[in-house]
Simulated scan of single mutants.
Amino acid sequence: MIHDPIPYGRQSIDQTDIDAVVETLKTDFLTQGPKIKEFEELFAKYVGAQYAVAVNNATAGLHLSVLALNFKKGQRVITTPITFVASANCIRYCGGEVWFADIDRESYLLSLESTRALIESKPKGFFAGIIPVDFAGLPVNTEEFRALANEHGLWIIEDACHAPGGYFVDSNGEQQKCGSANYSDICVFSFHPVKHIACGEGGMLTTNSKEIYDTLMLLRSHGITKNNMSENHGGWFYEMQALGFNYRLTDIQCALGISQLAKNDKGLERRNLIAKRYENAFEGKIRFQSLPEKTYNAHHLFVIEIDNRKGLYDFLRASEIFAQIHYIPVHTLPYYQDIGYGEADLANSEGYYSKCISLPMYPTLTDEEQNYVIDKVLTFNEKNI
């Protein structure tokens, strides 16, 4: 019998992480020091991108990404309704319109076909960009989205917050890690505690464009720089060249991030073992997210679908298993309803939401704990068929 509560997600902090933070606390820099650049360079190398920019959270990263792509007020951007609200809100922050395309019913990812149909239903130039999401850790095939975007002159921001280490194999037979930015303009990651790499809070942006990188770096720190100045009155002098923000990450958090990043591949292996055990237990009995060929799921979440979702949710909580729901479709939330999304036709997203529930998924979940979860889910399912 399992006595300790089992959450849907949990950070994995060990002594090496603690030591890394303590070592940084003893240095001269707690913020704006060398650990930030070190983390950025290591992360860029890990995902295969040329540049990385650390920020204080992924929501800030999404905001900066939109601004860095020369976004104009009133422009329209397509994203998925099955995501955390930040994927859509970043467009609203910049005065734009969010348009939702439906998800693929098997993968739960933004549907390429639905996105194409939406784009082609409007005049050329109607949309500015697409924000696909690597939902639950499953990589979007950004090569396919890039081809669609190129047809219509759109940019792509890949929301990879669930998927550091995930990848798909492209048409050239090459692994494309989430965040490589080979088919996206900018990619965004999260370092929230339940994510793969925990920094308390934090985020990372990756890109292969030097121009975009320079813009992100400028906007991250108030729009202030000492580079390319028209004049220099002394060592103290700087210029504010744009209206930027204080979206910086600290050296303390970056020290933790560096330590966490070094263990991510091991964590991914464990997440995939956990996923395989769930799949073996539920195959033919309970529906779960599909895995397209030549794709490696980073498994931030393991989502199943069940008709009596509320019943299972309550049953698991009574058993001290704290499953979660990811996510309420963004277009159904009061804010978006109030600004005109009440008539959106997104049947796949709403059908998914009516049945989805995320089971515990994190590297330190033990086999005993997982067996307990599986037993409870199957027991409930058998009684409610």
Rank of each mutant, 00 (worst) to 15 (best):
L138R: 08
L138C: 02
P139H: 11
P139W: 11
P139E: 09
P139V: 04
V140C: 08
V140T: 09
V140F: 15
V140Q: 10
N141L: 02
N141F: 09
N141G: 01
N141E: 06
N141I: 06
N141T: 10
T142D: 04
T142W: 13
T142G: 00
T142Y: 15
T142C: 05
T142H: 05
E143L: 01
E143A: 03
E144M: 13
E144V: 05
F145E: 04
F145L: 12
F145C: 05
R146H: 08
R146N: 06
R146G: 02
A147I: 14
A147F: 09
L148Q: 00
A149Y: 02
A149P: 13
A149F: 02
N150Q: 09
N150F: 07
N150H: 11
E151T: 06
H152V: 08
H152Y: 14
H152L: 06
H152I: 05
G153N: 07
G153M: 06
L154S: 09
L154H: 04
L154A: 02
L154P: 10
L154Y: 10
W155T: 06
W155P: 00
W155F: 12
I156N: 02
I156C: 01
I156M: 01
I156S: 00
I157C: 03
I157F: 12
I157R: 13
E158R: 13
E158H: 13
D159I: 11
D159W: 15
D159P: 03
D159S: 04
A160I: 13
A160V: 12
C161D: 09
H162K: 04
H162Y: 15
H162W: 13
A163L: 03
A163K: 06
P164Q: 05
P164R: 02
G165K: 09
G165S: 11
G165C: 08
G166R: 04
G166P: 09
G166W: 04
Y167V: 04
Y167P: 14
Y167K: 09
Y167W: 07
F168N: 00
F168H: 03
V169L: 11
V169P: 00
V169S: 01
D170N: 11
D170A: 06
D170S: 01
D170W: 12
D170M: 01
S171H: 12
S171A: 09
N172E: 15
N172Y: 14
N172V: 12
G173L: 15
G173K: 15
E174D: 10
E174I: 14
E174T: 11
Q175R: 14
Q175E: 14
Q175I: 12
Q175W: 12
Q176T: 12
Q176C: 12
K177S: 06
K177Y: 15
C178A: 10
C178R: 07
C178L: 07
C178Y: 10
G179P: 02
G179H: 06
S180I: 01
N182K: 07
Y183D: 03
S184D: 05
